[in-house]
């Protein structure tokens, strides 16, 4: 079984790696790149804890092979921080509205919300639910997550003014 050399830009940093074909993008990000923010919840594509942005679009990292990421641009939850490592606008809104408890689903929620807000800074409740409908959270009952996204959207609109 041959390994494959891949190049990918992860959180704006170019990476080169040699990967076994069967390695999932999730395991690659966590174990090879050392980005632990992307979480393993089910490894069969239901829970959404491993969501990342692939060329700006939210996908499940457990349902993609690392070798397929060759030539792609990937953003993980770590990539949503400001350049100085402080929480970005969306992350700060999640803190302010306490849109989490145990924090395990949180990176996936943030990724889904980021994708939503990138194209729509005035989402309706239905649009928010559609955006995070594939992210399971066991702690919160989602209400404070929705409020966090609404807060972030408000701040985004204010910042744009």
């Amino acid at each position: 079984m041959n390994n494959f050399d891949i190049r990918a830009t992860i959180n704006d940093v170019p990476h080169r790696a040699s990967v076994e074909p069967r390695l999932s993008l999730l395991d690659f990000l966590r174990d090879d790149i050392g980005l632990g923010g992307t979480h393993m919840g089910c490894e069969h594509g239901v829970c959404g804890a491993c969501s990342v942005l692939l060329d700006g679009v939210p996908i499940r990292a457990c349902l993609m092979l690392a070798v397929q990421a060759d030539g792609c641009r990937i953003t993980t939850v770590e990539g949503l921080c400001n350049d100085d490592g402080t929480p970005g606008l969306l992350q700060d809104a999640f803190i302010e509205a306490h849109g989490m408890q145990c924090g395990y689903c949180t990176p996936g929620m943030l990724i889904s919300a980021q994708a939503l807000l990138a194209e729509n800074d005035e989402p309706t409740l239905a649009e928010i639910k559609d955006a995070i409908g594939g992210n399971l959270c066991r702690c919160t009952g989602y209400v404070q997550i929705i409020e966090s996204i609404q807060l972030a959207a408000r701040r985004l609109r204010e910042a744009a003014r």
């Binding site: 594509g45 959404g48 969501s51 692939l54 679009v57 939210p58 996908i59 499940r60 349902l63 993609m64 889904s112 994708a115 559609d130 955006a131 409908g133 594939g134």
Partner: peptide, 9 residues
Amino acid sequence: VGHRQTRNR
């Protein structure tokens, strides 16, 4: 069909 993330792939 599925969710936003799964429809994207």
